[in-house]
């Protein structure tokens, strides 16, 4: 007979590893798929998995922003980019350049170094799931923090979005 607390911890771990496996496989798919549209769809799985992870640590507002902005807006922008540049769908040459083995060596080396560092620095540290995390992740707390502690960065980001909008229109305009 397992206690409810232990049962919840097991369920969280199972959910985490399911999401992590799906995200890892899809991330490989994003960088290895030979079809550009498939790569964009794999990216959707990775981003949705990240939203699931945020839900798992009770960061619900960030999770829904992730779904709305990343999956709803950015992936659609990517699909527009694919269509407008007539990216090769299949068969017309490889999508990889000649240095892919060097790239694989670099990324594997970096992964090994970072993993060793993380195990050394944060091994055994636990995220304690408690009720206060739910309060921490809701839109009330996040909004209060943005408009009280991070008001100046928030205004700077809004100006940056305006500049990016104008810049994108100026760059892509046909004149």
């Amino acid at each position: 007979m397992i206690t409810p607390v232990l049962g919840a911890a097991v369920a969280q771990n199972v959910a985490f590893y399911l999401l992590a496996a799906a995200m890892a496989v899809s991330a490989i798919g994003v960088v290895r798929s030979q079809n550009v549209v498939h790569a964009a769809l794999f990216l959707v799985v990775v981003l949705a998995g990240a939203a699931g992870l945020y839900i798992l640590v009770a960061a619900e507002f960030v999770a829904w922003v992730q779904v709305l902005i990343y999956i709803g807006a950015i992936v659609i922008l990517f699909l527009f980019g694919i269509m407008l540049t007539r990216a090769p769908m299949r068969g017309t040459g490889s999508l990889d350049n000649t240095q892919k083995w060097a790239a694989a060596a670099v990324s594997l080396f970096l992964f090994g170094v970072v993993t060793a560092l993380l195990v050394d620095a944060y091994g055994g540290k636990e995220i304690k799931l408690k009720d206060s995390l739910v309060v921490l992740g809701n839109s009330n707390t996040v909004g209060t923090s943005i408009f009280r502690d991070y008001l100046v960065p928030f205004e700077v980001v809004s100006m940056l979005l305006l500049a990016a909008l104008v810049g994108a229109v100026v760059i892509a305009r046909r004149d």
Partner: peptide
């Protein structure tokens, strides 16, 4: 949940992204 579960998954995604930036042509 261990903190390292999240950090190592994130490191894996980051390194996959580096591979993509270096190896993709499009």
């Amino acid at each position: 949940m261990g903190l390292n579960q999240f950090l190592i998954l994130s490191a894996f995604l980051f390194c996959t992204g580096i591979y993509g930036v270096l190896a993709r042509k499009n």
